[in-house]
Nucleic acid binder design. Structure first.
Length: 442
DNA sequence: TCTGGGGTCCTAGGACCC
DNA sequence: TCTGGGGTCCTAGGACCC
């Protein structure tokens, strides 16, 4: 039935491109439930660093109208009353489960774009699928059985529509977790689009939704009817493309190749506000160390580093500072950047200020491979080569024995900045000591 | 008491050039 | 009265994503 065209007049419904979006349901919560099957159908949330914000909610919690990103303390009463199980986020675990899902999907097609930790686009144009709905149901069942994570799958001729389809699949239980725009009637297509409000369209955030509301546009169907010029006026060039995508014309290609990052940031809110120089220097050193590790992983070197530090925004007298260093030559040297940023901090440091959060930024990258040739007259080449070798040695040791196996002394001056994570789950997949124990009763 | 941690892209406007 | 016209590059800020 699905492979016969019920509406030959509408060319857009049968394009040559077909995308699928595989989107994990309540991903962090689902990961926690993997090791705690007793929490199935129980209300569960996952909390951000410092156990501050709610960053994932089970369906049961969504039903209590607790919004995404809400500060946990504001909903304390509701969380307690409803016996909501709380977990501190364990990104190591979530990343591990995510990679397992990616590996499974890659067996279905190599044409995959890992869009985020819990979403992947697939270009399924060249797969010989006769019934997209049946195909998606099969993929969904396989991921559930082999990994244990429930997903929603949307199928459509463009990525924006595939996102929308997965949203429909997730929100409307009647579809059993999958929804396809391929082989639907024009009427079913319109009904589906009109069931999604503009703010749930990929690329429409709070501001733009408000702007569209003023124009009398409230749902995806109305949005898709917007004239291209008007779309560009209201939503910029991306908006114009978005409208085309909603009409089934693919504008955003599958991004398969890894794009080099243009900036790297590592930051933390401290476990407790502090003025202690050693504590803050330790935080600077640790954030720098992690940012530069990522930089070298990418095979890049940086020309510019920034330090941002702030007091608590939610307290009176809020202040923030930002300073940058521009290096004379691109660098990958953690030690150099730590020294420079700590030096910068000493020019900001005021006694009496209670600092709350700190970010370290790196920008303006060049390929690490070009360093040697470009720098001959700018830097001490031998010194530079030594730094590179030192970094390579540290990275290889840490890659083999675990992050922080070898570290800069400055990172360890005083770890009191570390966020609180009181509700953490055992590291089931990354620590032998924390494996679940099973008893066999004979 | 308690409010996360990452990223990208686009646009407008100013500086500067010829 | 008349007060060039383009182009490029850079940056800050706004908007979005998960």
């Amino acid at each position: 039935m699905q492979n016969s065209n019920p509406n030959p007049d509408n060319k857009n419904l049968f394009p040559d491109k077909v995308f699928a979006l595989v989107d994990c349901n309540n991903f962090f919560v689902s990961c926690e439930r993997l090791f705690r099957p007793d929490l199935e159908a129980q209300p569960v949330v996952v909390l951000s660093s410092n156990d501050g914000c709610i960053i994932a909610r089970s369906n049961e919690v969504k039903a209590f109208h607790i919004p995404m990103g809400a500060p946990a303390f504001k909903h304390e009463q509701s969380l307690t009353q409803n016996k909501v199980q709380r977990f501190s986020a364990s990104f190591e675990l979530y990343g591990n489960i995510s990679r397992r899902i990616t590996n499974l999907i890659s067996e279905i097609t190599p044409r995959i774009e890992v869009y985020s930790i819990d979403e992947s686009f697939l270009d399924i144009s060249s797969l010989s699928i006769t019934n997209y709905r049946a195909w998606a149901l099969g993929v969904r069942a396989r991921i559930l059985q082999e990994i244990g994570i429930p997903v929603s799958i949307g199928v459509a001729p463009s990525k924006t529509l595939a996102k929308l389809a997965s949203e429909i699949a997730k929100q409307q239980p009647i579809h059993q977790g999958v929804f396809s725009f391929a082989a639907v009637t024009q009427q079913a297509h319109d009904t589906a689009l009109s069931s999604v409000s503009t703010k749930d369209v990929w690329g429409i955030g709070r501001r733009l939704a408000l702007r569209l509301k003023v124009e009398g546009i409230h749902n995806a169907l109305q949005l898709s009817a917007l004239a291209p010029r008007r779309a560009q006026q209201l939503l910029s060039i991306r908006g114009r493309q978005m409208i085309a995508e909603l009409k089934g014309l693919s504008c955003f290609p599958l991004e398969q190749t890894h794009k080099l990052q243009k900036s790297i940031m590592r930051g933390r809110t401290f476990g407790e506000d502090t003025n202690e120089k050693l504590i803050i220097e330790s935080a600077i050193a640790t954030m720098t160390s992690r940012a530069t590790f990522r930089l070298r992983e990418e095979g890049q070197a940086t020309l510019r580093a920034g330090l941002f530090i702030e007091t608590n925004r939610h307290k009176p007298g809020y202040q923030h500072w930002y300073r940058e260093i521009i290096f004379v030559a691109p660098t990958v040297d953690t030690g150099q950047i730590i020294t420079d940023l700590c030096q910068i901090f000493s020019t900001i440091h005021e006694s009496g200020q209670l600092y709350h959060r700190l970010n370290v930024y790196l920008f303006d990258f060049v390929s690490g491979q070009h360093l040697q040739t470009d720098l001959l007259d700018v830097v001490d080449v031998r010194k530079h080569a030594k730094a590179v070798a030192r970094m390579e040695a540290i990275d290889s040791i840490n890659s083999r024995f675990g992050r922080d196996h070898i570290y800069y002394a400055a990172e360890n001056l005083n770890k009191a900045w570390q966020p609180r994570r009181k509700l953490t789950t055992p590291r089931y997949v990354s620590s032998w000591k924390e494996l679940p124990v099973a008893r066999i009763v004979q």
